[in-house]
Design a protein around this nucleic acid. Sequence first.
DNA 1: ACCTGAACACCGTTCAAGT
DNA 2: ACCTGAACACCGTTCAAGT
Lengths: 245, 245
Amino acid sequence: MARPSAAATRPRLNRHRVLTAAAALADRIGIEALSMRRLAQELDVVPMALYKHVANKEQLLDGMVELLVAEIDPPATGVDWRTAIRLRVLSARRVLLRHPWGRSVLESRTSRTPAVLGYIDSVIGTFRTGGFSDELTHHVMHALGSRMWGFTQELFDEPAGPDASGADGSGADEDASPEVQQAMLQALAEHFPNIAATVLTATHDDGTVVARGCDDQAEFEFALDLMLDGFERLRATGWSPRVGH
Amino acid sequence: MARPSAAATRPRLNRHRVLTAAAALADRIGIEALSMRRLAQELDVVPMALYKHVANKEQLLDGMVELLVAEIDPPATGVDWRTAIRLRVLSARRVLLRHPWGRSVLESRTSRTPAVLGYIDSVIGTFRTGGFSDELTHHVMHALGSRMWGFTQELFDEPAGPDASGADGSGADEDASPEVQQAMLQALAEHFPNIAATVLTATHDDGTVVARGCDDQAEFEFALDLMLDGFERLRATGWSPRVGH
DNA sequence: ACCTGAACACCGTTCAAGT
DNA sequence: ACCTGAACACCGTTCAAGT
């Protein structure tokens, strides 16, 4: 009765094992490389074995989002709404930095799963107990948008995959030679002077130019605080749809 | 396909014809159904014929973004920066509403194409001539994020495809019977009271509950104006990285 | 109850060949 | 110069069968 098959040596599959393996695999190889077949291979199982525990790939991704949400800190207690929201959002952001696939899976999904709804409900609750009217809370949640998850869509972010640079030839900023990079930056400055002004710094002696990197965390917090300040102003002045602008 | 030679009756392919056909096809069948093979079929050509005019699918998508950007109004002249940005962003938004694939293609792409860079450069230019320091302009562009393109990532937006409802069984809000919808709303209210408070309204006589739809355009403008107000406040007070919060 | 194997209908893209 | 055909290495998912 002891079969010499792979099944004997390997623990039985279940939904949770499938999901955690999927998340770990996506952490390692990137979300675009995560396929049902690749995941099955990772679990030492034939592709169709997965379908006993997960209806299809969509549900696999939904399940991965569940795992993600579970990693976000619960709301802080005994602090004002602004602190609570800020901490929560920055916690979500940390989760998404740990799991680079999170952003693109959240983006691709309109997943009204209980885990997702629970998180949203709890964020809304923080606003409401913080003195926001239901109407204002509604608007404020829209304005927060994906920032609630710790990210915002930005052009020129690194793609989701782990080893994105060099994966395709385009972009190719880091793997070019210094001379080529310098030429590209000069060309950029020539054709797009405004971009150059905000993103490059010229060294005084020669005409060479250097790209100033973006501090993503600082930029995220800049925009978040701008929003939170705006929210507080509306709340404090008793904003309502009629008297607002 | 009944004709002896399709090539004889059909105009020669070129890059522009390929791109416009791709955009029109995506408008019609949705971006997730747009494949090189499907596009070739639409153009009455064998799949490999496309590769003479477009290096690969990535470049096809980049080209579609070019078309998109070309549809955005040029910046208004003779108005203050706030009006100019607002008009421009709302023009971009109209373009994206016309082409539902635009959002997801922009999201999927880190396309540093000249068309995209030109648009960004021009938006930055509006801030700079409007009295923003280069440093503040940089932050403000980050804060604007995808709003600059007329969209923001939001949970529970309609998916990108044209006939998204009913395409998959999940979600299934509109195609359910009234009784089922009512039951779902009641269940929502029970498990997620805060969501319910901001998104549902109860009718007074019976206990039934009705979903208040979201006015996406109004929500977009609410958040946009909140941002622009914040930008103006920082500009007017001469914000700099040292004295800021 | 869980896993397997073969098959189907798709992808993007290569290479070598046709006109 | 432009288009074609066959082939390769992948997908997600079905169905019927094995243990």
